[in-house]
Design a protein around this nucleic acid. Sequence first.
DNA 1: GTATGTGAATAGATTCACAGCT
DNA 2: AGCTGTGAATCTATTCACATAC
Lengths: 227, 227
Amino acid sequence: MTAVAGPEPSEPIPGATVARLPLYLRGLVDRSEAGVGTVSSVELADLAGVNAANVRKDLSYLHAHGTRGVGYEVDHLITEISLVLGGDEPNPVIIVGVGNLGRALSSYDGFVAGGFPVAGLVDADPEVVGRRIAGKVVRPVDDLGALVTETGSTVGIVATPAHAAQEATNRLVAAGIRSILNFAPAVVVVPAPVDLRQVDLATELQILGYHQHRRTDADPVMSRVAG
Amino acid sequence: MTAVAGPEPSEPIPGATVARLPLYLRGLVDRSEAGVGTVSSVELADLAGVNAANVRKDLSYLHAHGTRGVGYEVDHLITEISLVLGGDEPNPVIIVGVGNLGRALSSYDGFVAGGFPVAGLVDADPEVVGRRIAGKVVRPVDDLGALVTETGSTVGIVATPAHAAQEATNRLVAAGIRSILNFAPAVVVVPAPVDLRQVDLATELQILGYHQHRRTDADPVMSRVAG
DNA sequence: GTATGTGAATAGATTCACAGCT
DNA sequence: AGCTGTGAATCTATTCACATAC
């Protein structure tokens, strides 16, 4: 009855775990560069700022086994996590919208280091099109399809104003992009197979605001002077 | 036995709810400007991209009541949510590190609109100190304490390179800041009463990478051509 | 009829605690 | 002795479903 075939579909990894893998990876790379051969779950937990049991459970989802009494082999673990996070091939990125934020993202070192080189820039404003930013010439939005094909891009970043975010997203989807990171402060919708993540800068501050407000409510003196 | 005193400590609101409040607020402001007087939980859910029951439960934590058969009063709800998210007074922000990202954040419109005006800029690099960015003169890190006092800042943004993030955070804490938003790709630790949030740009892409990888694994044709 | 408010059900994530391996 | 791997317990969050109010 139980039909089995193909090269292991490999059960999905919980979202919370996936979100922590890049943190582990960063910590592991750091340790590897320091010449360390193995890490315990406690050390790795420290590096990533989480609980050790959590680390062990997370790694168990990857079937990345350690050795009891010793820990996890650093380089091996780096390979395993890198593989899970999109293989080894780089994923070129197109940025739509090169205002202040788009320009900053264009030259953000962390992207290329993480395997996401910025391969193309696009903007709707004719004033901006043609300019050279971070070594790339800004192209018109109508070139999106061509640009995706030329560069083999797989990921899109939306860094437009809020009112243009849905349109930018639609164009990325139409161009075949299936992974989108939206920085515009707007809710955008995407068709089913597209994966969308939202990074909302002002919202992050407002969340901090809630706790701040609570703190100062509880202890009014705190609002004025540092302890 | 049950000691009761003071102006209602008001039970804490679940973190997941707090994180959605800014989304509701944005949607509500939009409706208000469109002249709409009431919204249903279904409409608000659409605006925020969440489930309607979720909206209702979230609002119930605020004790923000709607009227059955009608919905929620838009302007009233705006007031309620704004109040929960840090009152009405603006929270001035200090940005530490004015590289590409720090500069972009310095002139990010969403901050001031959300009640978080950028009140000061600080950098460790003497080359950068003294320059004028987004209308503000960049000051040396040693001025942090003075700057916080002068401006009444309550929130700090860390936009330094990874290796300087912990030091920057320490200095903000020492200057009396209790709410910190960290953009540096590094895990930083803070003492207990300080509230820290992390925005990790490269990590967001890597999370997208996981799903992308899974998709293309499952259907190798997808990796090359758009459907 | 329409839409809220909420208890109950479900799902997801974290943490504990300990057996089992090296 | 030390550290992994994991079942069980706990905590948090989401969703359902419906009684209740307008």
